[in-house]
């Protein structure tokens, strides 16, 4: 199944390649031989229910979880066997789920972004123009740099978190349930910003979500995880149009999609 996608992606360079990744907590296998690739400029959606291992996969890529087997390659460099130096770590950036805990309440937006640009000195003055450009990228005014996170709505905070991830110019962005803490109207605002940025900056992204409708609006390809196993990986239209695995079909049938309840099972 995965071969078809990899062939489709041929010609473009591969940014992330996960090969037969195994992660175990004690005797419990959380990820079982998961393989996937994300080519340059593409967004791969990672869907699954609780316990499917999708967050664990993100943690393994970022380096917070040590794999028991398999390899994670970023731009062809094996991350599982190299030391995660600051430079390596900065190549992958994560946008966390909860915009209310992902920004330090005691730092201004400018200080937060300056720290992303230069984690050692973090001078707002030295990076004034870059900070302004970053804020403009996520449709915020440059003046907001002087303010504190408490003054912003959830959607604005999430946009600031996106700007912080962009500041590093990472090879890969991992968006972990970035809209699940947000209201519907605000979710649309954040998804809109991500959509714009993908087009303008040619971003490569791993988009983790439990919400299939959101994934459909954001991703080029979709991987479905169930109990640590990759059950289906397909291009968006193929997956939503003709799901092949029964579990994918069950997931799609379960989504309350504006119509009356379809009795599942």
């Amino acid at each position: 199944m995965t071969d078809a996608i990899q062939k489709a992606g041929a010609g473009t360079t591969t940014v992330l390649e996960v090969q037969d990744l195994d992660v175990a907590f004690g005797k419990h296998h959380v990820l079982k031989e998961v393989s996937l690739t994300v080519p340059q400029g593409r967004t791969l959606g990672l869907v699954g229910e609780s316990g499917s291992g999708k967050s664990t996969l993100a943690k393994a890529i970022v380096g917070l979880v040590k794999p028991a087997g398999g390899r994670i390659l970023l731009d062809g460099v094996d991350l599982t066997h190299t030391k995660r130096t600051v430079a390596v770590r900065r190549r992958v950036q994560m946008i966390p789920q909860d915009p209310y805990s992902s920004l330090n309440p005691r730092m201004t937006i400018g200080e937060t972004l300056a720290e992303a640009l230069d984690p050692r000195r973090a001078s707002v003055k030295a990076h004034r123009t870059e900070i302004e450009a970053l804020l403009n990228r996520v449709a915020l005014d440059g003046e907001v740099a002087a303010r504190h996170p408490q003054e912003f709505s959830g959607g604005q905070r999430q946009r600031i978190a996106v700007a912080r991830a962009l500041a590093v110019r990472p090879a890969l962005i991992i968006a972990d349930e970035v809209t699940s803490a947000l209201d519907t109207s605000v979710q649309a605002e954040v998804l809109g910003v991500l959509r714009e940025l993908r087009r303008e900056l040619d971003l490569t992204m791993l988009f983790i979500s439990h919400d299939l409708a959101v994934v459909r609006h954001v991703c080029d390809e979709v991987a479905v995880l169930k109990d640590g196993e990759l059950v289906e990986l397909a291009a968006r239209d193929a997956l939503f149009g003709e799901p092949r695995h029964p579990y994918t079909r069950l997931l799609l049938d379960s989504v309350p999609d504006g119509g009356p309840l379809r009795t599942a099972g």
Partner: peptide, 17 residues
Amino acid sequence: GRDFVSTARLLGVPPSR
């Protein structure tokens, strides 16, 4: 345990800072 600390780590902010 808050997200902004783990994010700062990921950005390479040194422990003292």
